[in-house]
Computed example of a mutant assay.
Amino acid sequence: MTGAATRGAKPVAKKKGIDWSLRELRREDGDALLAFARDIPLHDLMFLERDIRNPKVVDAWLDQCERGLIRSTLAFSGDRVVGSSALVRDELSWSPHVGEIRILIAPDARGSGLGRALAQDSMDIAQQTGIERLIVRMTPDQTSALSLFEDMGFRPEALLRNQVRDARGVTNDIVILALDVNRLRSAHEVYGLPDNFPGD
């Protein structure tokens, strides 16, 4: 992966019959991002704090990216968005050292390695921007995502029961996983491993 300061188009990867390439989110991607969000099953959006199918929410997302509050990467297959990641950090909060990773993958692009590529991209940015702790949220039935992040060193830390409610009024639990970036780096130093995250 390239560094955060030089992020742009990444090489095209082809797995599971799907070509995709990664690049940083831009203002002109708003319509493609909305179309992508509306193709994601509603249940898979439940871990997000806002409904990204709403144009106002996407506009706010783009604004926050321009202000540097969110670092987002999109995966494109042709002109179509098939995946997105966001690294969210609030430097004015009580937790400026904490970043949250949010990843969405189009149903037909799952199993292609795209989720790992987007997770790795966010983790690389976290290292370069001094984030000390990373968290991810998801519903407990998102087993593939749980396995991916656990493989990358994240560990479950909390289960929030009936935390979110969908449009039908059905409640769902949210599980939170976390990774101590400094502890992982220290462990790598002790064992003489490369100074990067699992999956590099």
Results as ranks from 00 to 15, higher is better:
residue 22 L to S: 05
residue 102 R to D: 08
residue 107 P to N: 02
residue 171 T to K: 14
residue 165 R to V: 12
residue 114 L to Q: 05
residue 87 L to P: 07
residue 178 A to G: 15
residue 41 P to C: 09
residue 45 L to I: 03
residue 184 L to M: 13
residue 28 E to S: 09
residue 149 F to E: 03
residue 124 D to V: 01
residue 172 N to W: 15
residue 196 N to P: 01
residue 71 R to I: 08
residue 109 A to E: 02
residue 191 Y to P: 00
residue 83 G to T: 00
residue 65 C to D: 09
residue 59 D to P: 01
residue 84 S to W: 03
residue 3 G to C: 07
residue 144 S to E: 08
residue 99 G to Y: 09
residue 196 N to G: 15
residue 88 V to S: 11
residue 114 L to M: 13
residue 59 D to S: 13
residue 163 Q to F: 12
residue 1 M to N: 11
residue 183 R to C: 07
residue 146 L to Y: 08
residue 181 V to L: 08
residue 114 L to C: 07
residue 159 L to S: 12
residue 17 G to H: 10
residue 142 Q to A: 14
residue 110 R to Q: 15
residue 130 G to R: 03
residue 80 R to Q: 06
residue 59 D to E: 14
residue 177 L to V: 02
residue 131 I to P: 05
residue 182 N to F: 03
residue 160 L to T: 08
residue 115 G to D: 02
residue 80 R to W: 00
residue 6 T to D: 10
residue 116 R to H: 03
residue 128 Q to W: 08
residue 10 K to E: 09
residue 7 R to V: 06
residue 54 N to Y: 08
residue 58 V to K: 10
residue 183 R to I: 04
residue 139 T to R: 14
residue 65 C to A: 10
residue 120 Q to I: 14
residue 130 G to E: 06
residue 126 A to K: 02
residue 115 G to C: 01
residue 80 R to D: 00
residue 151 D to Y: 01
residue 25 L to N: 07
residue 113 G to P: 03
residue 177 L to N: 03
residue 58 V to W: 04
residue 92 L to K: 15
residue 164 V to H: 02
residue 79 D to G: 15
residue 162 N to I: 04
residue 15 K to E: 00
residue 96 P to Y: 07
residue 76 F to D: 05
residue 122 S to L: 04
residue 82 V to T: 05
residue 161 R to F: 07
residue 86 A to P: 05
residue 147 S to P: 07
residue 175 V to K: 09
residue 187 A to K: 14
residue 108 D to A: 08
residue 177 L to P: 04
residue 86 A to C: 13
residue 111 G to Q: 02
residue 25 L to C: 14
residue 163 Q to G: 03
residue 91 E to P: 13
residue 179 L to Q: 11
residue 57 V to R: 10
residue 89 R to E: 14
residue 69 L to H: 15
residue 80 R to E: 09
residue 63 D to G: 03
residue 148 L to A: 06
residue 92 L to E: 12
residue 118 L to R: 05
residue 160 L to E: 12
residue 116 R to S: 02
residue 99 G to R: 13
residue 149 F to N: 00
residue 78 G to Q: 05
residue 197 F to Y: 14
residue 140 P to L: 04
residue 92 L to D: 12
residue 175 V to Y: 02
residue 192 G to C: 06
residue 149 F to P: 01
residue 13 A to G: 04
residue 109 A to Q: 00
residue 163 Q to T: 10
residue 110 R to L: 06
residue 29 D to K: 05
residue 105 I to R: 05
residue 174 I to S: 06
residue 49 E to F: 15
residue 4 A to Y: 15
residue 172 N to H: 15
residue 129 T to Q: 10
residue 141 D to Q: 07
residue 11 P to I: 01
residue 69 L to D: 13
residue 114 L to P: 12
residue 36 F to H: 05
residue 31 D to Q: 14
residue 156 P to E: 04
residue 96 P to S: 01
residue 56 K to E: 13
residue 134 L to A: 06
residue 72 S to L: 07
residue 98 V to D: 06
residue 149 F to Q: 01
residue 52 I to Q: 11
residue 77 S to R: 00
residue 162 N to M: 11
residue 39 D to H: 13
residue 43 H to P: 00
residue 187 A to W: 15
residue 120 Q to Y: 11
residue 169 G to W: 14
residue 54 N to V: 06
residue 152 M to R: 00
residue 163 Q to S: 14
